[in-house]
């Protein structure tokens, strides 16, 4: 196991916020593992504990078999960390930043160029530009290059795709897949639920607690209800109508459909709904059974 967390608790004394409540999980070598949850879930606290920047109040964490509290120096040499906030030197150029991080880890750009080549090549034309003057997408690529320059065994990426558009996000995940194929263990966090399926295993996390931990398919399989997708020409009216129905357990908007679960999803429930809907006068009504996505699962697992 490359990463082990055992009963980790963290409370920030100043604010009194209980950021992590008894968190335990493991990540095997070479896995692409995702922490999925909204802001304030505790994702960054987990990263900071594992990268030896923060002590837990209780519990134990090991990285590459080393205790994060007693062996922090050795751990730091073996991991790469890309924090959520851009943390390179803004007044150093692209190349100076990369050189700086290489020397910090006793290596050179040339030594590990192969590993970062695909990423760095895209920003190399701007290598004399100060990092602070780069566009968001380029900053992200530079930060990733710097986190990789010493060929770490584990890569920690805290919300690398937040605020990034859908196209750049796809490219970024493509890069992660390639790094995984190089044998690097990757722990990545994201608030975008659709990115969860790109990980091998994920932890859904909220309010400092893990709601579920499994492969994305495993989490989807555990969804306990039959899920239906419905739509009509008047979506906001349909939403209000469904919310008021006694047979409906939950209803949430999902893109062009609303996703509905029923209190008792027996054979006749769909037929009854169709009759109700027709009586209420909704046009172009459509209903079909659908498979839950990670976001459906997250909503279902959230304590109400």
């Amino acid at each position: 196991m490359d990463i082990i967390l055992q009963n980790i608790c963290k409370t920030y004394t100043k604010s009194g916020v209980e950021a992590l409540k008894d968190i335990s999980f493991e990540v095997p070598k070479g896995e692409l593992f995702g922490l999925i949850g909204p802001d304030g879930a505790g994702k960054t606290s987990i990263f900071r504990i594992l990268t030896t920047l923060l002590y837990p109040n209780s519990g134990k964490a090991t990285v590459l078999g080393l205790d994060t509290q007693t062996h922090f120096k050795t751990i730091r040499e073996k991991i790469g960390y890309m924090p959520g906030r851009f943390s390179l030197y803004q007044d150093l150029t692209v190349e100076e930043n990369l050189n700086f991080f290489a020397r910090l880890f006793n290596t050179t750009i040339a030594q590990n160029y192969e590993l970062i080549k695909d990423i760095y090549i895209q920003i190399e034309p701007f290598k004399n530009r100060p990092a602070g003057k780069l566009s968001g997408g380029m900053k992200q690529k530079l930060a990733l290059s710097c986190a990789l320059i010493h060929r770490p065994e584990i890569l920690f990426l805290d919300e690398p795709t937040t605020g990034v558009d859908a196209v750049s996000r796809k490219e970024f995940w493509h890069m992660l897949k390639r790094l995984k194929n190089e044998g690097i263990t990757i722990m990545v966090s994201t608030p975008y639920m659709d990115e969860a399926t790109l990980c091998e295993r994920i932890a859904l996390i909220q309010n400092g607690q893990i709601l579920s931990i499994d492969s994305p398919e495993g989490i989807q399989r555990q969804y306990p209800f039959r899920l239906f997708a419905v739509k009509s020409s008047n979506m906001s009216g349909l939403l209000r109508f469904l919310r008021a129905l006694k047979t409906v357990q939950s209803v949430f908007s999902f893109g062009e459909y609303h996703h509905v679960t029923f209190l008792n999803a027996n054979a006749s429930v769909v037929d009854e709904l169709k009759i109700d809907i027709k009586r209420a006068g909704f046009d172009q009504f459509e209903i079909k059974e659908t498979t839950p996505g990670i976001e459906d699962c997250f909503i279902q697992l959230m304590p109400s």
Partner: peptide, 9 residues
Amino acid sequence: GGVDPITRR
């Protein structure tokens, strides 16, 4: 950005 799925809805 960054809010949980229910709050977002």
